[in-house]
Amino acid sequence: MRKVLGLAVAMAATLLAQDAGAQGFKLGVIAFQMSSETHARVANAVEAAGKARGWDVTLLNSRGSMPEHAAQLDNLVQSGVGGIVLAMGKTVELDAQLAAAKAKGISVVTVMSGTSPHTLLDVAVDDFAAGAKMATYLLNRMNYRGSVLLQRYEGNVSTRARGKVLDAVLSENKAVTVLDAHVMARPQGWREDVKAGMEALTLKHQGKFQGIWASFDGQAFIIDDILREKGVKKGDVALVSIDGGQETFKRIRDPNSLMTASVAIPFEVMGSRAVEAMEAIAVKKTAKEKIVAGPVLMVDTVLVDGSNVPADGKWPW
């Protein structure tokens, strides 16, 4: 045990020595769940943009745990950072911590985290608009008739908003019926959860559905694999989702994949915008109102399907 602890101390000392040499603006970045590709894309983009400016960047992962999320924000506030970026953070639950950050003069910019009176701004996409794009695309693809399966997730404000818009669109198009829906229940073990649920639903309703809607792309990938295992061919079922990313585009290009379309959210752009806003407001002392009038800095999304899918490594924006 003493050897283990000795190793731990040595590692800590090495890291501390590295830290002592860093200079300039200190930025803390907290991603709520780095195992989620979208959270990681934003957080990594923020880290890269910060480091490109010569900033000292600390990147933390809350692992989907609210207590950990709050503790990390507390720690960053104590560490004396100049600014904090939250990627998919929980601003309502972190109200007390964000108030403490504001009281210490620390600038906080969030990405897809919701607004707070204690933060400068939230870089976001309009999830209602993104949800509407995808819902109407799916129905159009199905010629406004048939049956769909849904893979929902109610535990996140973005995916919940997308689901609500889908419900609204479906309520006005009665020729499209919802055969069944699986609601993802376990954020920590969500892949297994989605796999088990959708395997059961696709088996139960085999051959009876023409479309599948997933609340985010990670779910769609799992469903795509399930359908392929069952021998479903491209064109038999329209599989749509929201998020976008290289894996999504690869699947849309793949003739064997069922992935039909995704509303691509420019997560890397959002990360860069968050750092640009931080630099302007916290470093260059530009008035926040010159960056954005309200509390949200909106970024546009792009619907990507076979007609406009970018080449490998490219982006649609």
Binding site: N75, L76, Q78
Partner: peptide, 13 residues
């Protein structure tokens, strides 16, 4: 350990 490493700027992993 968690607090100290955060203050030290150690990445999450």
């Amino acid at each position: 350990l968690t607090n100290g490493l955060t203050l030290a700027g150690a990445p999450y992993y």
